[in-house]
Amino acid sequence: MSAQSDRYTIAVTRYFEAWNAPDAQARAKAVADAWTPDGSYTDPLADAGGHEEITAVITAAREQFPGFAFRLTGAVDGHHDTARFTWELVSEAGGTPSGGGSTPVAGSDVVTLDGDGRIRTVLGFLDRVPAGA
């Protein structure tokens, strides 16, 4: 794996650490570790800028889907300062790495990174969303 590939993988790993942080304090720290201070997150349901707003978006998603976790579903692909990847929200009830349960939400994200590998922007696309979400 090249140093550039490692950079993308590390950034995406931090991204999922933020989405899966178990409590508010851990979530705020994980967002600060993953995103630049002026970073942003945009998908069809949210448009957030800065650590506080991004943390609020993640908290709202975690509250809407308790007992679920976000998981990478393929390889991280990237070039220059941009990476893309696919993910799904899985039930943790199955106790397996893939969640072993339902996957109500799935999508793909494109992130841009700064020179230190922190996220500047996330553009999210939702491929599967439950009715009423």
Rank of each mutant, 00 (worst) to 15 (best):
M1R: 06
M1E: 11
S2R: 02
Q4T: 10
S5A: 12
D6W: 12
D6I: 09
D6N: 11
Y8A: 03
T9P: 01
A11S: 02
T13M: 02
T13C: 01
F16Y: 15
E17I: 01
N20Q: 05
N20E: 02
N20S: 08
D23A: 10
K29G: 05
A30W: 05
A30P: 00
A30L: 00
V31G: 00
A32P: 04
A32L: 01
D33R: 10
D33A: 10
D33S: 08
D33I: 03
A34Y: 07
W35N: 08
W35V: 06
T36A: 14
P37Q: 08
D38A: 13
D38W: 07
T42Y: 06
D43W: 00
D43R: 00
L45Q: 11
L45Y: 11
A46Y: 13
D47L: 11
D47T: 13
D47W: 04
G49C: 09
E52P: 00
E53I: 01
T55A: 08
A56S: 10
V57Y: 03
I58T: 11
A60V: 05
A60F: 13
R62M: 06
R62S: 11
E63F: 07
E63P: 05
Q64Y: 15
G67S: 10
F68V: 04
A69I: 13
A69R: 15
A69E: 15
R71I: 15
R71P: 05
L72T: 12
L72V: 12
G74P: 00
G74S: 03
G74F: 01
A75E: 09
A75F: 01
V76W: 13
G78N: 04
H79R: 15
H79T: 15
H79A: 15
T82I: 06
T82W: 07
T86P: 01
W87K: 08
E88V: 06
E88R: 12
E88S: 12
L89V: 03
V90S: 11
V90L: 02
S91N: 08
E92M: 14
A93Y: 02
G94S: 03
G95C: 09
G95R: 01
T96V: 13
P97E: 05
S98K: 09
S98W: 14
G100N: 08
S102D: 08
P104N: 04
V105R: 05
A106R: 11
D109N: 08
D109L: 04
V111E: 02
L113A: 02
L113N: 00
G115E: 13
G115A: 14
D116Q: 12
R118I: 04
R118K: 13
I119L: 11
R120S: 06
V122Y: 10
L123P: 00
L123W: 01
L123R: 09
L123S: 11
G124A: 12
G124K: 08
G124S: 10
F125D: 11
L126C: 03
D127F: 05
D127K: 07
R128A: 10
R128T: 14
P130E: 07
G132L: 04
A133P: 03
